Computed example of a mutant assay.
Amino acid sequence: MQVPFKLTILGSSSATPTSERYPTAQVLNVLGRFFLIDCGEGTQQQLRRNRINYSKIDHICISHLHGDHFFGLIGLISTFILQGRRSALHIYAHSELQRYIKFQLDFLQLDQTAFPLIFHPLNFKRPQVIVENKKLRVSSFPLKHRIACCGFLFEELPREANIIKEKIAQYNIPIREIKNIKAGAEFITENGQVIPNAELTIPAPKPRSYAYCSDTAYNEAMIDTIRGVDLLYHEATFAQQDTALAAATFHSTGVQAAQIAKAAEAKKLLIGHFSARYKTPAEILRQARDIFPATEAVKDNASYLVE
């Protein structure tokens, strides 16, 4: 059975909130670990609305220092302090964010020793691995915006095959050989019979991946980094008739997001960060689907499986 790999949209508006959309924030449940990606205003309310336990969030990725992507952070940290949090909170962001948060904590006279608050500066010139363990790798990569901005790539790492328990008894397989078989080796019985690995194991599920492309102009430089991703979120602030405005503000149109998804051979595209100038994203979605049919416009409080 596949372990969870689920994205929940907390906010999908650009610049300012609307009556239906909060500023940018997402939660990714990957293998039971919860990552908060950007933290716009109202993130706490949206976490509660979606019944996501605050205490499960140990990692926060902030793409860039425009307010609609991090104005909710100090409120969330304050709540952690009030709730008596003790476990470390890791924040991956521009190095200047640490100074800004420290100023707010000082001004509000909040306890800065309540729990370890660990800042990790991002590299805005080249991709870098920011989190890695036996099951998961998280990388940041540069985007093309008015200020330094990063996207994030979450990759499940390959797992070993599962050995079929009945085969252990059938062929009298010693415990010392099981690790090699799970890694792909064949097994040779005491009488010299070669048992193919395919008969002994069930292949592990294919590793899954999710890429988050926050505020960015059309940027072919990131295509190789996100190539083959299972689920791609790419901002689509403007409709195609506003391409000039998108270029001037270093944002993308739905068509440009679709072009990136197609070039990167993504399986599925989610678009968001819609300008409040449009009553609905229907036109942006239609234009994107003309290029990349497997496109969906995100909705606040909706969840999407990475498959």
Rank of each mutant, 00 (worst) to 15 (best):
I91Y: 05
R48L: 08
G228R: 14
E156Y: 03
Q44W: 07
I168L: 08
L136P: 00
E20C: 00
A114K: 13
A93N: 08
A294S: 13
L200K: 14
F115P: 04
A248Y: 15
D224T: 01
I130W: 01
A248D: 15
N50S: 10
Q112E: 11
S140I: 00
L108I: 09
I271R: 07
Y22G: 04
V30C: 11
R277D: 06
F80I: 04
V30R: 01
R146S: 15
L108K: 12
G272L: 07
A302N: 12
A257D: 03
P281K: 04
R159I: 01
I173D: 10
Q44E: 13
T225S: 01
Q26P: 03
F35K: 01
H64F: 00
E41A: 10
K179H: 11
F141R: 10
S19P: 08
Q128L: 07
I188Q: 04
D58L: 09
E166W: 09
K179W: 05
T24K: 10
L305N: 10
D106L: 10
K206L: 08
R21L: 15
A258K: 03
S19G: 12
E307W: 11
F152H: 02
Q241V: 12
F250Y: 11
E177S: 06
H59Q: 13
H273S: 11
R85G: 04
I173Q: 05
D68F: 15
Q46G: 02
G67R: 14
I57N: 04
A239S: 15
T24N: 07
S12T: 12
D224I: 00
K134F: 05
G84V: 09
R159A: 06
G42Y: 06
M1H: 01
D106V: 02
A161S: 13
D290Y: 08
G67S: 13
I81W: 14
F80Q: 05
N123L: 02
I226W: 07
A198D: 03
A247W: 04
M222Y: 15
L117M: 04
H94A: 11
I164Q: 06
I164T: 05
P203N: 06
T18C: 09
I226G: 05
N123I: 07
E220F: 07
A282T: 00
I62G: 06
K134E: 02
V255K: 11
R33T: 14
L143A: 05
Q287P: 00
F107L: 07
R289L: 04
T201P: 09
H64W: 01
I260V: 13
R277L: 09
I130D: 02
Y92W: 09
L7E: 06
N133I: 00
R126S: 14
V255E: 15
Y278R: 09
T253K: 01
P4I: 00
A88M: 00
Q109D: 10
G32T: 07
I60N: 04
F154V: 01
K135H: 02
I37Y: 05
I181G: 01
R227S: 06
